[in-house]
C-alpha cells in the first residue's frame, strides 16, 4: 500500500515539480537579466545570476520569492488586513461558492427539463452550448455594469459570472447521467407502473450521481475562474482578481504570482474536496468499491 502510493503518486508528481522548478530558475535568468544589468554594474557571473533570482520587481519572480510572499501575506498579516492573502482569498471563495451553488442548481434544473420535456430537449441545448462560445471576458463587464445600474453590487454579480461558467458542465453531465439507465431498467419501472417522479427519484437520479460529481469537479474550477474574472473589470478592491489587477498596476509581479498561486491552491482544494465527497458518497452507495 505504502510503496504503491510512493511509486504511483509521490515519485512521479515530485519529479515533475522538480523539473518545472529547475526550468523556472533557468528561465528567470535571461528574463530578468536586462533589469539586473541596468541596476547593478561590475557583477561577477554568479552574483549576476543571484540578483536575477532576487529582484524586487522582476519580470519573472522565482518560486522562492513567490512562496516567501505567500507565507508573509498568509500567516504574518492580520486576516482582516487588506494585505492578507487570506482576506482576499475568502472574498473570492465566497463568490465562487455562491456561483457554484447557483450554477449547479441551474444546471440540474435545465437537465431535468431537457430529459423530461421534448420541447426543451430540442430547444435548450443549442442555447446552452452557444452561451459558452461567448468569451466570458466580453460578457463579464456587461453583467457587472447592468447589475450595478440596478443597484446590485458586491458578491452577487461575481457569483452570476461564476454561475454562467459552472452551469454548463453540470447540464451536460446531468443530461447524460439522467439518461444513463438502460432500457431494461426503464421497462422494468414501466411494468411496475411507476410515475415519472418515481422513475426520477428511484432510478434516474441515483444513476446520474457519478456523472454529477465529474461535472461538479469541472464546475467548481470554472466557478473560481468566473469569480476572479468578475473581479477584474469591476474595479474591485478585494479578492484574488483585484489583487492580480493591483499587481499589474504597480508592476508588483510577485504580488500577481502569489495571487495566482493562491487561486491555483484554492482550485485544487475545491476539486479535491469534491473528489473526497464523491468517493464517500459513491462508496456508501456501493457504486464504487
Amino acid at each position: 500500500m505504502k510503496t504503491s502510493y510512493l511509486a504511483n503518486k509521490f515519485i512521479p508528481v515530485s519529479t515533475i515539480v522538480i523539473l518545472i522548478g529547475v526550468f523556472w530558475y533557468v528561465v528567470a535568468v535571461p528574463m530578468n537579466s536586462d533589469k539586473v544589468s541596468r541596476q547593478f554594474k561590475n557583477l561577477t557571473a554568479s552574483e549576476h545570476i543571484l540578483k536575477c533570482w532576487s529582484l524586487k520587481k522582476p519580470k519573472l519572480p522565482t518560486p522562492h520569492q513567490i512562496i516567501t510572499e505567500m507565507v508573509n501575506t498568509t500567516f504574518f498579516k492580520k486576516i482582516s488586513s487588506k494585505r492578507s492573502l487570506v482576506y482576499h482569498g475568502w472574498i473570492t471563495l465566497q463568490a465562487t461558492l455562491a456561483g457554484f451553488f447557483l450554477g449547479t442548481l441551474l444546471g440540474i434544473l435545465l437537465a431535468l427539463g431537457i430529459v423530461h420535456n421534448k420541447a426543451m430537449d430540442l430547444s435548450v441545448m443549442p442555447w446552452v452550448i452557444a452561451s459558452q462560445t461567448i468569451p466570458i471576458l466580453a460578457i463579464a463587464p456587461m453583467i457587472i455594469v447592468v447589475m450595478n445600474s440596478v443597484g446590485v453590487t458586491g458578491l452577487l454579480p461575481k457569483a452570476i459570472i461564476s454561475m454562467y461558467l459552472s452551469f454548463f458542465p453540470v447540464v451536460v453531465g446531468m443530461v447524460k447521467g439522467l439518461r444513463s439507465p438502460d432500457q431494461i431498467q426503464l421497462d422494468q419501472m414501466k411494468t411496475w407502473s411507476a410515475s415519472s417522479n418515481q422513475i426520477l427519484w428511484y432510478l434516474r437520479f441515483p444513476s446520474s450521481l457519478p456523472f454529477l460529481f465529474a461535472s461538479l469537479k469541472v464546475g467548481v474550477a470554472a466557478s473560481l475562474v468566473g469569480a476572479i474574472v468578475g473581479e477584474l473589470p469591476s474595479g474591485a478592491i478585494a479578492g484574488l482578481g483585484a489583487r492580480m489587477l493591483a499587481g499589474t498596476y504597480y508592476g508588483q509581479t510577485i504580488m500577481i504570482w502569489s495571487a495566482l498561486f493562491a487561486a491555483a491552491f484554492l482550485a485544487a482544494f475545491l476539486v479535491f474536496t469534491i473528489d473526497f465527497l464523491q468517493k464517500i458518497t459513491l462508496k456508501r452507495m456501493a457504486i464504487i468499491r
Binding site: I184, Y202, P206, M285, I287
Partner: peptide
C-alpha cells in the same frame, strides 16, 4: 428480464 437489472446501490 434477461438481465437481473438489480440496482447496484
Amino acid at each position: 428480464f434477461q438481465a437481473a437489472g438489480l440496482y447496484p446501490w
